[in-house]
Design a protein around this nucleic acid. Structure first.
Lengths: 144, 144
DNA sequence: GCTGTCGTAACCAGATCGGTTACGACAAGG
DNA sequence: CCTTGTCGTAACCGATCTGGTTACGACAGC
C-alpha cells in the first residue's frame, strides 16, 4: 500500500495542541513543527485542512497562533480522518474495465459492497478513539 | 487517500480466471487484458505477484498461459490483499518526530495500537469474501 | 509603522503506478 | 530444427501524490 502518514501527522498535531493548551502559550506552526520535525509550512497546510473541517481555528496578526475549537475528548480519529483524507480506502479501476465482459461489468458493484462494509467498520473503529485518548495513552506509558 | 486500485485489479484478474477456466480455453495475459482494458504487461506484472503468493501458476512455451492453483472458493480477498499490498494501511511519520517531546515520542506507540486494531479487523473482513463469492455475486446480479 | 505569524503560491525531489516498447527465454508442434 | 506464441522482465515515460523549501503578501497587536 502506498503508506499514508497523513492521519498520523494530523493526529500528532492535534494531540500536541491538546497537551500544549494547558501551558497557556500560543500554538504556532513553528512550535508544532519542532515536535513533528518538519517545515512550518507543512504544518500550516495540515492546519488549514483541519480548520476547514472545523477542528481548529487561527488568529492572525501579532501574537497569532492556533487553537482547538473542541475539547480533545470530543475529537475522534474519524473526524481527523475525514479532515485529511478524501477518497475511498480502495479504489475501482482507474480506467473503466470492459463492460462487455461479465466480469468487467460485474466486478465493480461486487467489490463495491465489500469495500463499503470494510470502510464502515474502519470508520467505526476510528470513531472509538479520541485525541484525549491518545494524550492519556502517552501520559500513561510515560508515568507507568 | 491515495486511492489504491491494486486490490481491485488483482481481484478482477482472479475472478476472470475463475470464470474463464470453465471454458476450457487457456488464460493468457492478452485475454485478461481485454477484460481489464489495459496493457498485457500490466496484467503479467500482477500475475507475477499473484504467482509469488502461490495463487496462480504459469506455463511457458507454445500454448502457454495461466492457471489458478486453488479453488476459487478457497481464495479470499485477504490472500489477494497480501499478494499485492505490502505496507501497512496507515504509516507512521516518514521522518521520525522529535523524541524529546512527549507527544513526539509517545504518539507512535499510541497510534500503533489503534492502527493494529484497525488492520486486524480489515483483514478479518477481507478474509470473509472469496473469489467464488465475487463470481456468484456477478452471476446473481446478471440473472436476477 | 514594526513585528510576528498566518495564508498561499511556486517549485523541486522522491515514490508510486499505469502505459508502452522491446527483447530474450521457453516449450509445443510441425 | 525451426517456427510460433506466450511468458518474464527491463527500460522509459508521464501522471499523481506528498513533503521540503523559499518567498511574499495579509493581517493585527503593540
Amino acid at each position: 500500500m502506498s503508506a499514508n502518514s497523513r492521519l498520523t501527522i494530523a493526529a500528532h498535531v492535534l494531540t500536541w495542541m491538546a497537551m500544549d493548551q494547558e501551558s497557556g502559550r500560543v500554538a504556532t506552526s513553528d512550535r508544532i513543527a519542532e515536535s513533528v520535525q518538519t517545515n512550518p509550512v507543512v504544518i500550516r497546510r495540515y492546519l488549514g485542512e483541519l480548520r476547514a473541517a472545523g477542528l481548529v481555528e487561527a488568529r492572525r496578526g501579532a501574537g497569532a497562533g492556533w487553537r482547538l475549537t473542541r475539547e480533545p475528548a470530543e475529537v475522534t480519529l474519524l473526524d481527523v480522518y475525514r479532515a485529511v483524507e478524501d477518497g475511498p480506502l480502495f479504489a475501482m479501476h482507474a480506467t473503466p474495465p470492459n463492460l462487455g465482459c461479465p466480469v468487467g461489468s460485474g466486478i465493480r458493484p461486487a467489490l463495491g459492497e465489500v469495500y463499503a462494509g470494510v470502510e464502515e467498520r474502519l470508520r467505526a473503529q476510528l470513531a472509538a478513539t479520541t485525541i484525549a485518548d491518545l494524550l492519556n495513552d502517552i501520559r500513561g506509558s510515560k508515568n507507568g
